[in-house]
Computed example of a mutant assay.
Amino acid sequence: MAAQIVPLPRKQPEASIEPMLAITASGMNQVNQVILDRMQSEIPLIPALAGHLISGGGKRLRPMLTLAGAQLVGYNGTRHYKLAAAVEFIHTATLLHDDVVDGSDLRRGKAAANIIFGNPATVLVGDFLFSRAFELMVEDGSLKVLKILSGASAIIAEGEVDQLTAQRKIETSEERYLQIIRAKTAALFAAASRISAVVAECSEDEERALDEYGRNLGVAFQLVDDALDYDADAAQMGKDRGDDFREGKMTLPVILAYARGDEEERIFWRAAIMGHRSSDEDLAHAVTLIAKHGAVEETRERARHFAARAINALACFPDGKARQAMEQAARFAVARGY
């Protein structure tokens, strides 16, 4: 019987990504070597542009989920190294494409690839990394793994298109928002977690448990990202504060503040989301309104709910370092300030 979901406490000083980093450190060395090898090309621009982002200091949480999941289920082979690299290539490709779509200036605290190399090169190198990811999947030889990761790639693209069509639409509902982040973010978290059970030839129940863990962790992670856009400065986030605001994205803090605001506040939000109120002063006003209605804290509260569901999904696995590290990763996802 599955354990009852226990909401995570608001203050979690023990929440840390360090246990996850510790148990995956050796494996990530193998993954990083695959990444380094497979991002090479006879066309110098490709490794230069890909390396700009890949070496940019990201947490690499998604490939770590594949490695941690493999430890959780007792897998002792090596297939998961290439698959974890494929996961990271898929993620990196989507970031490159996102920065072009969003017109981003910063990524992980430094100039985005599209600012340095231009939009055409950034899109094409993203395509190259997608292709490399599929090469790695095919080399693995498992049709089930290929189905999971290719399916996740399609869902991510659908989520990004869905987000684009919802952009600057003030009527976007919380349900629609959750649908978008389940696709554009949580799908890859779920796939990265699930494939470790596939290579270990685990039961369907264990596969589903790891899928559930990753999916809920992904939702929690994105909720906190969206909260931080109205709650942290650019130095913490590694991107321009207010990016979502200026791009007219209807994230949960805005959806909640708009729903709870009076008519004067709603007039402001309608103008802002349409792009007519996008100055620094307008952003400051938006942050004030979001704070007034407790929208950042409530967004974090929703994230704690999904993190608790992620932890609950691991109840069918024996306790140990891997499970504890994965539980800590879920707590870290909602407690982080960056």
Score class of each variant (00 low, 15 high):
154 A>V: 13
41 S>Q: 11
11 K>Y: 11
112 A>M: 13
203 S>C: 01
242 G>F: 05
42 E>F: 09
289 L>F: 13
76 N>K: 15
266 R>S: 02
241 R>C: 12
110 K>S: 13
237 M>Y: 08
157 A>S: 07
321 K>C: 07
165 T>L: 14
244 D>Y: 11
244 D>S: 00
188 L>H: 07
279 S>Q: 01
113 A>F: 15
208 R>Y: 12
153 S>N: 09
314 L>R: 01
44 P>H: 03
107 R>H: 14
98 D>T: 09
197 A>R: 01
324 Q>V: 00
216 N>M: 06
318 P>Y: 03
184 K>F: 11
68 A>C: 02
240 D>H: 06
259 A>H: 10
145 V>F: 00
245 F>M: 08
308 A>K: 12
98 D>W: 13
272 A>H: 14
327 E>K: 12
92 T>N: 08
57 G>Q: 02
237 M>G: 07
230 Y>H: 00
55 S>V: 00
118 G>D: 11
131 S>W: 05
145 V>L: 15
159 G>C: 02
67 L>W: 04
21 L>P: 01
35 I>M: 15
265 E>S: 14
67 L>R: 04
286 A>T: 09
6 V>K: 09
102 D>Y: 12
7 P>A: 08
33 Q>R: 05
29 N>I: 06
95 L>C: 15
234 A>W: 13
124 L>P: 03
186 A>G: 03
145 V>N: 08
13 P>T: 10
271 A>S: 15
313 A>Q: 05
161 V>N: 07
16 S>T: 05
336 R>A: 02
334 V>A: 05
155 I>A: 13
171 E>C: 03
63 P>R: 04
43 I>H: 10
243 D>T: 14
257 A>T: 15
103 G>H: 02
320 G>I: 11
206 E>M: 05
254 V>K: 11
123 V>W: 04
272 A>K: 07
324 Q>S: 14
78 T>A: 08
84 A>G: 08
164 L>E: 06
57 G>D: 05
255 I>Q: 03
231 D>N: 12
110 K>W: 09
134 F>S: 08
150 S>V: 03
279 S>N: 00
292 K>E: 08
201 E>I: 01
270 R>Q: 13
302 R>V: 15
261 G>S: 07
209 A>I: 10
97 H>V: 02
327 E>S: 03
218 G>Q: 01
55 S>E: 15
224 V>P: 10
40 Q>L: 06
207 E>W: 15
279 S>L: 02
136 L>F: 06
134 F>I: 08
